[in-house]
Amino acid sequence: MNKTSSKQLLGVAIFLIAIFIGVPLAISLTGRWDFYFTLTSVALLAIASAGVWLTFYIGRINIGQGAFALIGAYVSAILVVKGGISFWISLPAAGIFAAIVAVIIGLPILRLRGVYFAMITLVLTQVVTLTALALPITNGAKGISSIPLPSGVSLFGIPIIPEFAAMENTKLAFYYTACILMVVTYAALYRLVNSRLGHLCRSMQQNEELASSIGVNIAHIRIVIFAISSFFGGIGGAMFGSIAQSVYPSSFQVADSVNFMLNCFLGGLGYVFGPMLGTLVLYFGWDLLFELGKYQLLIYSIILIAVIRFLPNGLLSLRIGKGGQS
């Protein structure tokens, strides 16, 4: 059922070569080292956006990914700074913690639909920000700063991941880490969408009652999907905190949650790789427009509006008749 044509394989190969070899080569040729940070951010935000896209796949508009990214960032930071645990263990821990929170919160709120779900997730972002301000362990508005760089990992004396602090080019290391994470995330997402669960999700997206009436356990599926989605959010947030070496309650706010949603919409909701493209275009576009100074937001929003005005179904809808599932 998972037939990948040679054309698709070629596309993936080109993409992998481009991000792992092409981009570092291009950057070292042009000397624009600042692009590493931009592209690393794009990769991490794309992971979180993948989660938002997945919740859309069961017909829910999720504007709460900032909340789970913030939770992930805090969990990882607290484990590393206060618990002295290796970052590489705190990373999955952050994702799992975010997923657990998602299950607890999701049980009641996933009963909501449409705009109600969208609005409550928006409020959720605000709740997490305020909680981070109020709790003692998160250190209030001061946040957690000077988080150490990820330490090395070795198995049976063979180093698998080198010590980040000892590296001369941390940017490149973070770039590779983020890209590997992103590739794994999207591979998992693609696999999920093309699995039995993916088919069930599509049936829910179209009509929940109908899906339920033919024996789909919709309550179970939507919790699982929301947990996976938040896991992505937590991973992205934790990695982001590690790169910035600091976490504040304002690290991920309502605006970030809205941006995650925009990434998915702009890329196109019917396409697995939509959120990746959307993140790249939005974040990179924003960065490129920086030179316009005070007109940055104006030009950016006009382009955004123009895109949605003339391509209401997302950028990838230009590629007609390919990959569209719904």
């Binding site: 925009l262 919409f265 909701l269 929003s301 509006i305």
Partner: peptide, 13 residues
């Protein structure tokens, strides 16, 4: 739902 993206874009504008 595309109108949400538009509304957010208008908010930025």
């Amino acid at each position: 739902e595309s109108t949400m993206l538009l509304a957010a874009g208008i908010a930025f504008l």
